[in-house]
Design a protein around this nucleic acid. Structure first.
Lengths: 198, 198
DNA sequence: GTCTATAAATCGATAGAC
DNA sequence: GTCTATCGATTTATAGAC
């Protein structure tokens, strides 16, 4: 029962590989439209072989979502290091990064809509994620207001919801039609918002 | 071969009933998460009995989407009769109407994301619908600009994309959390847009 | 850690009687 | 127009050998 503090292994390359392959598959078919056999085949293992690393399909998609979410958070926070970016800079950076990885955007767009169903394995995940993103976006707006970057008479919570909606809606249109200038529309809105024009 | 011009029948109450029940089911589970057996059971008919009215599952969901889409178009156009509403009035009316029928909003939100997959039966439907809505929204904006309701220096096509994105994104958040004031956020944005404030 | 074999359930669709 | 019966394919998950 006594255990020496083991060095935490990188959980094995297999596990990482499965998460990558599964992310690509779920991004297209969502949870319901993706079979374990399909993921296993692309990984190069049998379907029970896949279930050795993730005991159920539910655990697999949750691991994929959490992994990608953490990865993205880390990237954006590293991008700004210790700086305190404005709402505009934060969202601009997020948009530019998203434009380079349509697969990630698609994973979250497809799965988030699917997960509106209460019995969906990622239903609670998206509820919690939504609350978290909304809160941090509201905090960004309020900080801008205190610094005089954004007008003080704006409702910070309403604006946070509006900007999240804009991001998500632009992503959907961009995924459907890649000729949509996602970043252009986003930045045009942000510029006018900061300028207090319209 | 000669046919007297037959009076177009209402296609039977059964058909309408099936479309209603199927819309409710697809709104929750999308195409992939809804079985014909489930729809048939709620209609009160056997699964082959259901397939008598719609020969395939694909034909059923397409019929549901087209039916609801036409219905909604007709309602909105009737609401404004022969008037030429502004972009703001049009979107406000759309938002208010949507707020009264979450099931319809959910049907299109869930199915649209699912249909990003090229092999989805409604993939082309949403491609075409997206083009159509974007074009008519752009036309609304341009008309407002000609009438001096909206600033002439705005890019009409960009603004059309932004407003569509805002609508879709707000719907997603509102479906996930009904406490989100979808119409409040939308109308706040529209008011400031028309006022040319920010 | 990975496999084969298989259980157990569900799915869309068809055949054919009434 | 609706049914029963059924086909054939697919799905998640388990048992158990190696």
């Amino acid at each position: 029962m006594t255990r020496a503090p083991r060095t935490r292994r990188p959980a094995g390359a297999r596990r990482e590989q499965i998460l990558d392959v599964a992310a690509a598959a779920f991004a297209v078919g969502g949870y319901r439209g993706t079979s374990l056999a399909e993921v296993a085949s692309r990984v190069g293992v049998s379907q029970p072989g896949l279930l050795h690393h993730f005991p159920t399909k539910d655990s697999l998609i949750l691991a994929v979502l959490r992994h990608r979410d953490l990865d993205d958070d880390r990237h954006l926070e590293a991008h700004f290091a210790d700086a305190t970016p404005t709402t505009r800079d934060w969202l601009t950076a997020m948009g530019r990064r998203n434009e380079t990885q349509p697969e990630l955007v698609r994973l979250f767009t497809v799965t988030a809509a699917e997960a509106l169903a209460p019995e969906h394995p990622a239903h609670e995940f998206f509820l919690e994620r939504n609350r978290r993103v909304r809160a941090s976006m509201g905090a960004l707006v309020r900080r801008d207001q205190e610094r005089g970057v954004l007008a003080a008479d704006l409702d910070a919570d309403q604006l946070a919801i509006e900007l999240m909606a804009l991001m998500n809606g632009l992503q959907l249109q961009w995924l459907r039609d890649p000729s949509v200038d996602m970043c252009g529309v986003l930045e045009a809105r942000l510029d006018r918002l900061v300028a207090g024009e319209r």
